[in-house]
Design a protein around this nucleic acid. Sequence first.
DNA 1: CACACTTACGATATTCGTAAGGATT
DNA 2: AATCCTTACGAATATCGTAAGTGTG
Lengths: 299, 299
Amino acid sequence: MTAKQIRAFLAVAQSLSFAQAGERLHLSQSALSLTIKALEESLGGRLFSRTTRQVSLTPEGEALLPLARRLLVDWDNAEDHLRQRFSLQQGRVTLAAMPSFACNLLPPILKTFHSAHPRLNVTINDVINEQVIEMVRDRKVELGIAFEPQPASQLTFTALYTDRFVAVVAADSPLAQCDSIDWPMLLQAPFITLQRPSTVRILLEEHLAACDLKLSVAVESHQLATVGRLVANGLGVSAMPALCVQQMRELGAHCMTLSHPTVERPIGILTKPDHELSAAAQALFDTLVSAPLFSAGRL
Amino acid sequence: MTAKQIRAFLAVAQSLSFAQAGERLHLSQSALSLTIKALEESLGGRLFSRTTRQVSLTPEGEALLPLARRLLVDWDNAEDHLRQRFSLQQGRVTLAAMPSFACNLLPPILKTFHSAHPRLNVTINDVINEQVIEMVRDRKVELGIAFEPQPASQLTFTALYTDRFVAVVAADSPLAQCDSIDWPMLLQAPFITLQRPSTVRILLEEHLAACDLKLSVAVESHQLATVGRLVANGLGVSAMPALCVQQMRELGAHCMTLSHPTVERPIGILTKPDHELSAAAQALFDTLVSAPLFSAGRL
DNA sequence: CACACTTACGATATTCGTAAGGATT
DNA sequence: AATCCTTACGAATATCGTAAGTGTG
């Protein structure tokens, strides 16, 4: 029993005429006749009662009719569903991104993505850097956005840009007058930053330790926004990835170039190797990679 | 998208190997490869991720997997269902028969039928002769058993046997001594029979009127069993189709040949012309026609 | 180098359409 | 006579298997 035979059966059952059904199927009467005959033989009995002048369904044909309808509807629905997935008219992309990225850079990119593929849904998990890696590894999400992980993470990393830490100071601070600042100078003020499990904190400590700079943290929080507010209100200074600049400005803090040493680290897309992306995820991947934001390699 | 392609997809998805799946499908790897390729092209994207050394499902393939399973299960179920119908392993026959037939002759015939086709269900409607005709005409039932109807009924009549009316008298009646009896003699006793809309009653009146015999009904009922009991208790005599003989004996009445005139009428199967019987109904039809009971043409 | 999928190609089957046949109105 | 389905037969198409090709471990 083939799909073609069922389609033929339905067409004949609908018009109760081999000739008409043949036209609708773009098939000659004879071919249609053979097709129905084959179906009947495969099932072991007649589905139509033909009296040269009139075609009608046998009781078994009537029994098949609703079954055949459902079968074909289900069949076509499944086919459409897959086709839509492939043609990006349907589907869901699951994404994990570290909060600073999700908050600052992702929205405009998702806007572009959504206008290109209005029917694709996106699930964003804004979780800390380590959880991004974990979620990609566990296949909880197809795409992750994070700092470049250790090679031991066994994940594929596609760099988007290299983030460089900037200094954050109060807008009315004397430091805000300078164009740029170096670490020794910045660290003379009370330092405010994120709490320990945060990747930003870890990165800072690693880099500064390598340069024999001592980091004494005056205040710590686990929310970037809080850190920003604290700095804006003159309680101290901070340093954070450049991708937070916009957010810091909105919070009333001032950002400036920070050097000696330059703390920088690539940020990119994490994917699981040996696991092809869904068409939808691939589309978001492509949108990310080709986002104008990243074309300079830096912000 | 063909059924064969879906079967191929499922086989490969299950074993995650073209070679193994090919064996299970009795197909060469190359043919299977082409089949999957065709499916993928028809859907517009890859379903499997092949890395020469390992086959795995793409996200879209995983999406198709449950759909494909359901599709094939439904497909095979429908196919089985029809096949079973045709092979008489499943189905229902609807039958209407006049009560006297349903009660007296049908049970042994249905026993034969059921032992030949244990999985076929039978719905019996025991309704009066006119309703049998009506139900067949309205396609409420596929088969009817009744007296031969007028040609105007537009139904196909297949004779089973010719029923001849017999006399029914009390077992202890003097009349019970004779081997046979004629109408004038019978009618000297009070006559008990069915009420007017009944076909038995109508037949009697028609036949006797044609012979200038006057029928005066002493008692009437609408149940044959009641008539039998009344006769058995000596309240009068009756005449009824030979098919009731057995039942009358069990009620304690005595039956004997009745002549001058012989009232007889064919009994047979009613079917709707131009409407093929279901395989199950045809089987019951055949069982009825070839029942040994009717081989003599009379009871 | 062995293994597993893909591609190429010739052989086989299937399917199709034209034309002839049969039956009914 | 006209219509409609079936059957017959040659042609086009599709499918299959063998064998060669390609990439990976």
